[in-house]
Design a protein around this nucleic acid. Structure first.
Lengths: 221, 221
DNA sequence: ATAGCCATTACGGTTTGCCGTAAAAAAAAG
DNA sequence: CTTTTTTTTACGGCAAACCGTAATGGCTAT
């Protein structure tokens, strides 16, 4: 059973929607937070008082403002919360929709549900909630397909490094020096060229411009 | 006075928030639409029946789904609505925050207010509403500053066209043919090279990869 | 009509990127 | 320790991109 819920969401409008949804779901006790630090703190206190939350509902992106925060986004909040109270259920409610990123949240932090802010999001929230109430994970069917599709190429740290340098204005022939200075080990121009060639081929791209755009869109950059 | 409001917003959660806000503002008559076509239609009908809406609240991005729509985003909706009922007040409520884009909405379509989905958005909605009730325009103070700052370079349609082609994998020497086939008029390779060179210089970039990334980040692509 | 101006195009030299092959180095296997 | 395999690097020819200069074409004003 889910009795006690904490909502972490900085947008007032979305926060209120979630609260209203909680009421419709007849959750007796829900709290809300507009900052990650605040949410984490409430979770800590509740656990200490022997009345821990059953469920955290959180967005992924939080906007910085004049109040300086230790935890400044949902990813870090999830990580921190898992350390404080490993068994708490986590529902991610966000507009973010990079499938691989979401999938990695399920794998790495074992989140229990993901609902995308979209048409019919409230209905989907309730579906997710039902699943969670029964102790089930809620993994949207569409997500599985999207993950499959998008997982055409697995980028290594090295790949990302190169692509980032390109997107920062480095020429390819400047990159070997850059890598040598940092003792990063494949560092020849030839290897860099080969790597880029390979990546482009696997993704069906002809130009680095496409690659950079792709990496931005999938959240790699 | 604002008596009658129409809400165009596809996210259920945001839509419900707006409805709730309308109730708090004691708006007696408000309707909502989850599709632009639906919103436009309601505006048309209301006007025909001699009970036109006073205010349209709309998002800018609407997601496509199986229901094929004629008008598929807020920009087009605003344009269409201005033709149907030029005097209606328009409040844009969106997560979109490209200052120049928003500013151009004020200039081109004479929208009356813009509220960003963010922390305290509900409070700002009410402020905007107050201004509109008094017949005033609501132009957020922060927006003016941002517009000034961000106007480093003004992209022409032509610029965007070229950059988009690059980001789709076109080689520069393929672009002249592409443009000629479509009777787009500077179309020589030389002009394209010159244009890109100029853009890069003005933005302090050395590579097209940077440029593409920049355009993606600022929402031009 | 023509002179002047601006945008567009054409051209050529240089640099950078692309891609194949082969050598060298490192890692794995025997 | 040697052999095999894989990874990394070096090199070279060619295509694309870069960038300056000059020529062309269109437009305006006198």
């Amino acid at each position: 059973m889910i009795d006690k819920v904490i909502i972490a969401e900085d947008h007032t409008s979305a926060n209120l929607s979630l609260q209203k949804t909680m009421e419709e779901l007849q959750i007796k006790h829900y709290d809300d937070a507009y900052y990650c630090d605040d949410a984490l703190n409430k979770i800590r206190v509740a656990k200490k008082n022997g009345q821990p939350y059953d469920l955290l509902i959180t967005d992924l992106s939080f906007e910085a403002d004049e109040k300086v925060q230790i935890i400044d986004d949902g990813y870090k909040l999830i990580k921190a919360v898992r350390e404080v109270q490993p068994e708490i259920m986590i529902l991610v409610f966000t507009g973010e929709h990079r499938p691989t990123m979401i999938d990695s949240l399920y794998k790495e932090y074992e989140i229990d549900a993901y609902v995308r802010k979209a048409r019919n999001d409230v209905k989907e929230l309730k579906l997710a909630f039902d699943a969670l109430s029964k102790g089930q994970q809620y993994y949207p069917r569409a997500l599985a397909q999207l993950v499959k599709q998008s997982n055409t190429y697995e980028f290594t740290e090295f790949d990302i490094h190169i692509i980032r340098l390109l997107s920062q204005g480095y020429q390819q022939n400047e990159i070997p020096d850059y890598l040598k200075q940092r003792n990063i080990r494949p560092c020849s121009l030839s290897t860099i060229e080969k790597r880029l060639n390979q990546i482009r081929e696997e993704l069906g791209f002809s130009k680095n411009e496409q690659l950079v755009l792709f990496c931005k869109e999938t959240g790699i950059l």
